[in-house]
Write a protein that binds this DNA or RNA. Sequence first.
DNA 1: AGTAGCTTCTGAATCGATACAGCACTGAAT
DNA 2: ATTCAGTGCTGTATCGATTCAGAAGCTACT
Lengths: 348, 348
Amino acid sequence: MKPTLQDVADAVGVSRSTVSNAYSRPDQLSAALRAKILDAARRLGYPGPDPTARSLRRGFVGAIGVLFTSELSYAFTDPFAVRFLAGVGQVAERHGTSLLLVPLPADRDRARAAVDNAAVDGFCVYCVGDEEHVLGAIRDRGLPLVTTAPRPDAGPADRFVGIDERAAARSVAAHVAGLGHRRVALLADTVLPAPPGPLRLADPGDAPHPTTRGRLTGFADAFAAVGVDWPAITVLNATGNSRAAGAAAVAPVLSGDDPPTAVLACSDVLALGVLDAAGPRRGLSVSGFDDVAEAADAGLTTVRQPAEEKGRLAAALLLEPPADPADGHLLLPTDLVVRTSTGPVPRS
Amino acid sequence: MKPTLQDVADAVGVSRSTVSNAYSRPDQLSAALRAKILDAARRLGYPGPDPTARSLRRGFVGAIGVLFTSELSYAFTDPFAVRFLAGVGQVAERHGTSLLLVPLPADRDRARAAVDNAAVDGFCVYCVGDEEHVLGAIRDRGLPLVTTAPRPDAGPADRFVGIDERAAARSVAAHVAGLGHRRVALLADTVLPAPPGPLRLADPGDAPHPTTRGRLTGFADAFAAVGVDWPAITVLNATGNSRAAGAAAVAPVLSGDDPPTAVLACSDVLALGVLDAAGPRRGLSVSGFDDVAEAADAGLTTVRQPAEEKGRLAAALLLEPPADPADGHLLLPTDLVVRTSTGPVPRS
DNA sequence: AGTAGCTTCTGAATCGATACAGCACTGAAT
DNA sequence: ATTCAGTGCTGTATCGATTCAGAAGCTACT
């Protein structure tokens, strides 16, 4: 077996506490003794205090959990998520804190178990939808929590960093409406659990996922302002946040008669999928959301939100909690980025 | 304070062990009693067994460490690393294992401390260079270890999954040499700790980082075969693995007289940087390494290696250790992918 | 009735460290 | 000579669970 603190203590002939101090509180013992202890430890092959035992005793772990409420590989598939994670990592690095990426099983009970078993001091949840049960599990554990969206069920201790989804969405939609588009489709990932393609949604406020709800509502606002009411707008459901899913969702309406002249997507990745599906057909205006790297290359009109900064702030909110809880809610600025994927309505 | 197992036990009037069993070994007690216990736990707000305490007692954690031997954000900046990580995540997900991303400080002592403090059952090290001290720290802890390259100092328990770097490099270089290029430059990240630009390296085998060494040697092999000896080859040093670093490293020789007709980079990201720097100037052949997504768009000739598969296998090697240690060394296939970035030598 | 065989539950030991009060000793101030 | 403050180290309690041998209770069979 690996030697423990006790073994080192015995070898040197001091108490366990003294060996512990040699590692964690060098000022508590003479340099000579400390050297002697460290030396004996090396000789015995003692690898230093066991992290688990230390955490138990100390009451904290030195790691924060990062949750993506969909399969873990989503985190690495979506460029926006990757940059968010990079931001979180930067701040964690500064604090000597590790990041625990917890894969969440789809099954709710198992997802809860995964959260319950995570040895962390707090959670940073990258919200992509319906994660109440996960947030509940975190709150039950009494751990601090940062989400990337304001939540209807936010607890008093919850902190968040996000954008004004509705206003941001309104800004692109107003741009598209301003170009004259009146026959439009909105595209989002899992508006409802339904197959890809058009979907009937009585009201944008009925979308269950807060982010999607906010964006759809913002889109609706802008079109309502130019006289296009909700029922006249097509809602497209994508089954996943990927180019392929975006393409699949939009395909049926593109090939139908009376296709929309503009598609507003709730993410760049979906929007790129629309461009893929539309192919060389010009005249279709497409907008995205987030402004990921690929958007610029594709000339995609979109709404920029600061990805890394969002991650940095989320981590900071967790690791350097604001004295005043009121400062725990951060709203980030967004910018409308107009590129070539949107243009005037083509004359029939 | 949060209630503990004991509190729940007291509330129900059973022993601590029984409550523990209710959570971890449902078959050890009657369904009725279990329900009663879980119910009381809910009422008291007991969040379930403490992960840290559980790990301590059980002797394992349920998480594996993933190390990138450079700043953590590197992991999210390099597309190849991201895909590798995604692969690791897939397998971890299957095993209900979490991923601990440990930021490694540049300072060696602090890096060692970071490794020592990580509560994990094993490490998966994404090698990008000079990480002996980190590997040493892991071995001292007696934890299983998977690297992405065979290491000169590999311990008996070390496992790895990688490619034949030298042969792979030889394949692109042979392609470039076959096109007639004789005045060539090789580009790698941190060949030596030196400023960006040309570098004197007596022999490709002198490069300290195993991966770089393997690739440079392979490049050299192919050119030696057509009569171009090592001293005639320019080695370019990049200070980082990024487009910008690649561009900066190549700039001086492009603007010099007698520029190379081909640049062979040790990563796609660097190669893309070379294309950036070369701008519209045609005639310069450029090759990369890895075949990341952007390579295809840029028409970059490169060597493909299976990124996600590498990650999956690395995780599998850690989580499902092969019975025979000899099976712990995996060599993956590579493919030469010829695109438009390489072509014949332009006539003066 | 006695005992064998189950199932269900208990108690004590254990995992490997940290925190804290307190003890012994030293040197300086009174 | 006596008190006082300051070092440097020790001993014990504690963190919150899991494990395992074995007790208790119950059925069933001879």
